[in-house]
Design a protein around this nucleic acid. Sequence first.
DNA 1: GCCGTTTTCGGCCCGACTGTTTTCAGTCG
Length: 571
Amino acid sequence: MRNAEIARRLTTLADLLEIDGANGFRVRAYRQAALAVENQPRQIADMLEAGEDLTDIEGIGEDLADKLATLVRDGRLPGLGDAEKRVPPALRDLLRIDQLGPKRVKALYDELGIQDLDDLRRAARNDEIRRLSGFGEKSQDKILDALERLDSEERRTPLHEAQQVAEPLVEYLRETGGVSRVTIAGSYRRRKATVGDLDILAVCDDSRAIMQRFTGYEEVDEVISRGKTRSSVRLGNGLQIDLRVVPAASYGAALYYFTGSKAHNVAVRRIAVDKGLKINEYGVSQGDEHLAGEDEEAVFAQVGLPFIPPELRENTGEIDAAYHDRLPRLITLDDIRGDLHMHTRDTDGRASLEEMADAGKRRGYAYIAITDHSQRLRMTHGLDSRRLREQMAAIDALNERIKGIRVLKSLEVDILEDGSLDLPDEVLDALDLCVASVHSRFELSREKQTERLLRAMDNPRVHIIGHPTGRIINRRDAYPLDLERLIDGARQRDCCLELNAQPSRLDLGDRYARQAKEAGVILAISTDAHATGQLGNMPYGIDQARRGWLEPDDVLNTRTLAQLQKRLKRR
DNA sequence: GCCGTTTTCGGCCCGACTGTTTTCAGTCG
């Protein structure tokens, strides 16, 4: 059983226990255990197999270690069956409805016999809910609204889409009189690949004025709440946005607090409590004495920690690393010296070879690699041996006359179903760099897909595996793949993995990028640009690389041209 | 259910807003 499935079962049990009115801390223990399992780099099943002690994992004690062992062995989580007898499992779905928490879900079940979303919809339409004590007219209306939203579209917003909404809104808010700062906190500031909502923080002399302006923004569809310090709205596209107004003296504490993640905050606050300190969104205090709040660094300093970059604040080891002064020196856009994956008009790109080279030069790159598709990808007019040779000759000619940037002769060669490559070795031998990617047969079994990729890496001409999991955010899941084996295989073969920076791909994602780094695998952060402007997607890749704890040395395209060429030859 | 330099019991992060309430519970982040 995979970690994701174990985490799912733990979360299910936590939900059911919560509805059943179990001790809240017990519920939280199950949720934290689910999180711990999900963030565990190794498979729980493998750890058990190796006889390792699960209680070494923070958040897993004796009891849960036993339960996890049973779950992995028998496929049954102790306690889950009982809970499902007491609480209809479909009641969990009701928790997804805004404004419905465990208490009210329980009330709906006890009083009206509501067991699932359909029951809820019926009861709301029949005007039954408003009659319930603790509910009313507005609650019933809100439930109907939320049900409708759930039907229409349920998904997190990709970071780049959120950015397109957020930036103009922030500008708009900055134009309010008396505003001195406007910043977006939350998962947006942590640069998660997708965001659930936006948390905006503002410092303003006149909170009423900015709240007025915020709720009056032209794209606002619904005002969910409106107060002196906090308001929430929903935009026409469904995205929820919270605005908080804080005094300047609390700006740093509020920024820290609302940047999260929740798990990170809870862990740091636990340290603070041990030191007799209290942290909230207004500052750090001891008794009545206010110790810090104006800036984030000071908040960290009070708990004895250096500044932790937002991208790392997930409670996955960053607090311990900070404590021992072992935080990574995270990669930045300035460290990048070239882009190793892009297309031209020869296949499915929109710009010419020369235009791509000029665009790379304008970004200050020392090198770019032209990686058009190979023949198998008919719909992109993929290159066969003859056309590839022509392109290579054109690149040689271009390198003769262009100054200040080196264009590498490359290819994004298709990995065929059996793991062999789409063009013969003697053709690939003439390339400077070779990226190999899967574009077909996504439905192969996990075993076969993994073997296919390992086999492709067996060919020493392959330097980089492109978009290794094939996921497209909100549109296509990763194909079944044993990422741990792939990463280990890449390490053994000294092959690089790509971190594809296309905002809809971000593949490898943050977690696997980190696993690759820890295994000693070098990543290439590449835009996969199909037009000159898309070379500008590099920052999205950098974001995820930072979330994956990557340092400049972990990344192939931070190398100088000479270093890069040496490394490419070594394969 | 977890955890422990306040250690095997008794804590466990904390404040804002809403709706349904006469003083606050529930939800959210």
